[in-house]
Amino acid sequence: MTRWVLGTFTLLVYAMVYLPIALVVITSFNQDTITTLPIEHLDTRWYAELFQDTKTLQSLWTSLQVGIVSTTVATTLGLLSALAIVRHNFRGKSLFMLLTVMPMLAPGIIMGVSLLLFARYIGFQTGFVAVLLGHVLLSLPYCTFILISSLARFDRSLEEAARGLGAGELSVLWRVTLPGIMPGIIGAALFAFTISIGEFVVSFFLTSAGTTTLPIRIYSIVKVGITPEINAVSTLILVATVLLSATALSLTWSKRN
């Protein structure tokens, strides 16, 4: 009895999670100009219009650039942090870890406005680099913690063996440690990229006229009036996100087993 009640409840929660997403995908194939139900004609008209829309395509390109650079920076910094935390004992270590988690806990709007104030105060131009640095800050905690768990599981006797065979510290890091934790590195990078591609609030405050990321572009279209083109863009991002996360998960997962 309990089992069936709970089971039905669980099923309803899954339906609640997937229904809105499914509607985005379905309505993106709706031919009508207004997003209404029921759908009378299915076609790919809005995808065709999307690929004509240079502003949206330009913002996608900006998002990809920001994503790739911020991912590289955040993953590298996260790796350094993780190495320090897993392999060294130092004074203030717990304070450093607390500082690392903090950006995960503070509301995004606080980080957006404080970064804007700071940038203006020191005379730093908002725009591409500012948005990128904001994304680095947001993804750094996730990268650090993924890499900490990856490093903690890594078998250090391999490094000892390499040292015994005469390898220098950097060559041990480059040829033994990094390849050994590669699934964790790729997982962290994909996580950071996913955050960067979808991020809105911080970018909203740090953006400039020339740097429109895709979420900001979507926001500006939605604010004016919803067109089915938005559903097409969203569907494409959705597919990309699910593919990226699935890859990230399977990589971190296979390492665990």
């Binding site: 809105p20 979808g198 979507i218 939605v222 959705l238």
Partner: peptide, 8 residues
């Protein structure tokens, strides 16, 4: 998936 899209 982006908060913006899920909210929308």
């Amino acid at each position: 998936v982006s908060v913006l899209i899920r909210t929308y």
